[in-house]
Structure formats: structure tokens, C-alpha cells
Computed example of a mutant assay.
Amino acid sequence: MKIGVFIDKLIFGLNILFGGALLLSSFVPYISIKKAPIVAFFSLGIPILVFVNLIFLLFWLLRRKKQGFLSLVVLLISYFSLSSFFMFRFSEKAFQESDLSVMTFNVRGFNKNQHIENPNLLEEITDLIKTENPDIICFQEFNFRNRDDFKAYTYRYLEYIKNKGKVTLAIYSKYPILKEGLVNFPDSPNNAAFADILYKKDTLRIYNLHLESLRIIPDKNALAKEQSAKLFKRVSQSFEKQQEQAGIIKAHRKTVAYKTIVAGDFNGTEYSNVYKTIKGDDLHDTFKEKGTGYGRTYNFKYYPVRIDFILADEAMEVVAHKNYDVKLSDHFPVMASFQW
């Protein structure tokens, strides 16, 4: 056998392997993590599988080989079944004052543990909020000591949680808050909050979510040092917790009779069953409606991960969406605007 033919067969074998993995990933959103925790790992790796299959497709096209049809078919199937993680739009629509704007931002305690070497970070965050001027803000990992730093917002909901390990959430609004509360996640440092906001004589329910953290340090050297078995077990347990929490939010939403926006840090991608459970059939993903590019929301080197979302009631028209490329936390802020 000629060496060239052998190499082609070897490459095509790898092509079949990665193509099959991407096809299997098409079923990931429909499989409960509790039944098969390993599927959640596929949800994190789908962008990589898409990229690898694109490389195979280009390789065979450049060589004018019919093997390229495999990756082409696989990519088309995955696109229509999973939707794209990249939005092919050339520009973002501008925000208008007449529309309702909502921002979500995991601020990591406003850098209270000095993870970022920037003594002016709090001032830069407040300047960003002042400039972008959202009507409603959902903060995750809020620092209770900074509760009075956003004076432009007449209404707010946050509670001082005595449990030291529990994450603090905050909702700030320029419109009256009629009702508020916490949605507690059992046996977890994470939780959710909600606020019913009076807007144009209508009531809007805002959920602010912070789902179970995967507790992965976004550094390849740190990941390499950890034993794979321990990493798999820990992350699998976190995925199972997320699935339970998604079910809690889904059940809680069923008690609400008016329009809903769900925002926050999901600690998982749009390809997970957790995301599918929370989104259901009646919420829009604002990034998919009006976003551009990768829409990354988490600062993971060399890998554009989108784990922060704004999901809006289908009765609300998504007018604009923006992902901010500002390094003020390990997350990036996201904002969207609406009409109805």
C-alpha cells in the first residue's frame, strides 16, 4: 500500500471519529444529565468538534476528494439540530432609550479577592453601568458592601445571606419592584432571585440565576495538574446539581402568569439539557435573535465560551443584544433590549 493512500485512510478514519462525535452531540440537549452525566461534557466540547470537522472539510476540498462530503453532511445536520454558536451578523443594533434594557453581569465580588490587578476596577464597573444605562441589572456574585454604589436605580432587591458560602444576587431597577424573593437551591452555594417589576402598567417577572459552578480554573496548566478521574467526578456532580436547579426554575416559572425574563450565569452552554430545560419552548435567546460573532461571556483563554444568558418571553420583541469585551471580572457583561 502506498504511503499516501495509507495516510488518507488514517485521516479519513479520524474524520469518521470526529464526525460521529459531533452527530452524537446533536442529541445532547435532549438527554437528562442525571441519566447520563457524560453527555454534559459533549455540550462543552461542541464548538471544538465543529471546528475540527471544518478543518477536515477544508482539507478534503483543497485536495478535491469526495471524502469531504462526510464532514459537509455532519456539519449541516449539526447546524440545523443544534443551531450555530456563531451569529453571522455584521453589526449590532443600537440601544434606544424608549426600549426596555436588561443587563446581566457576574461581577465576582467586584474583585474583592484581587483576582485582577486593577485598583480602579470598581470605578470602571460603575462607569460602564452609568454609560450603558440599563433599565434593569442582574448581578451575580454581588458584594453586599457595594449595595449603595448604584444610586441611579431607585429600586433594588438583594438580601444579606448569613450563610457565608451562599452567593449574593442583586437586582437593580429603574421601575418599581412589586414583589421579590429568593429561589433556594438545596445543598448548594448557588441560588436564584426574582423580582416582579411594574413597567408601562404591566408586570414583568425577572429571574436572576446563578447555577452550580463547575469549579474549573480557566487555565490549561491548572487543568493538566488535576487527576482526570477527580476532575470528571467533580464536574459530573456539578452538572447533576445544575439539572436539579433547572427543574426548580422551570417549576417556579409555571406559577407566573405574566411575561418573564430569565437572566444570569448558567455555568453551562446553550447545548446542555440544563439550558433547554430553562429556556423551554416559550423563551427567546437574545444572542441568537440579535447577537453577533461568538458572543463569549466567560474569560477562558483561546475558547469562546457562552455561559451567561438573557432569555425573554416570546411575546417580547428582542430589539438589540450586546456582548461587552471588557475585562472587569472573569465574566463579561451582556445586555439586551425589548419592545412589546
Rank of each mutant, 00 (worst) to 15 (best):
F6Y: 09
K9W: 05
F12W: 02
F12V: 01
F12A: 01
F12P: 01
L14G: 15
N15T: 02
L17K: 07
L17E: 04
F18C: 04
L24R: 12
S26K: 07
S26C: 15
V28R: 07
P29M: 09
K34W: 07
P37G: 07
V39Q: 06
F42M: 13
F42C: 07
S43V: 02
L44V: 11
I48M: 10
I48Y: 12
F51A: 14
L54G: 15
L54P: 04
L57Y: 04
L57C: 03
L57R: 02
L58V: 09
L58D: 02
L61E: 08
K65Q: 11
F69W: 12
F69I: 11
S71A: 14
V73G: 01
S78F: 10
F80G: 03
F80V: 08
S81L: 15
S83K: 15
F90L: 13
K93F: 12
K93L: 13
D99W: 08
L100C: 02
T104G: 01
F105S: 01
R108C: 11
G109D: 04
G109Q: 08
G109H: 08
F110C: 11
N111C: 14
Q114C: 09
E117V: 12
I125R: 02
D127P: 01
P134L: 02
I136W: 00
E141M: 13
F142Q: 09
R145N: 10
N146P: 10
R147L: 13
D149V: 13
Y153H: 01
T154L: 07
Y157M: 05
L158K: 09
E159H: 05
I161A: 05
N163P: 03
K164F: 10
G165H: 15
V167R: 14
L169N: 01
I171Q: 02
Y172R: 01
Y172C: 02
K174W: 03
Y175S: 02
L178I: 15
K179M: 13
E180Q: 11
G181V: 06
L182N: 12
V183T: 09
F185R: 14
N190E: 10
N191T: 14
I197F: 04
L198F: 13
D202L: 11
L204C: 08
R205K: 10
H210R: 14
S213M: 11
I217M: 09
I217Q: 10
P218A: 06
K220M: 08
E226M: 12
Q227M: 10
L231C: 04
L231S: 03
F232G: 02
F232R: 09
F239D: 06
E244A: 06
G247T: 10
K250Y: 06
Y258F: 07
K259F: 08
T260K: 14
T260R: 10
T260P: 03
V262Y: 04
G264T: 06
F266T: 03
F266L: 14
N267H: 05
G268F: 00
T269Q: 02
I278E: 05
K279D: 04
G280T: 09
D285Y: 07
T286C: 03
E289I: 06
E289A: 11
G291W: 00
G291N: 00
T292P: 00
T292D: 00
G293F: 00
Y294Q: 04
R296E: 12
N299Q: 09
N299H: 12
Y302H: 13
Y302K: 14
I307L: 07
L311Y: 01
E314I: 15
M316L: 15
V318P: 00
Y324C: 00
D325M: 08
V326F: 13
S329N: 14
V334L: 00
A336H: 00
W340Y: 09
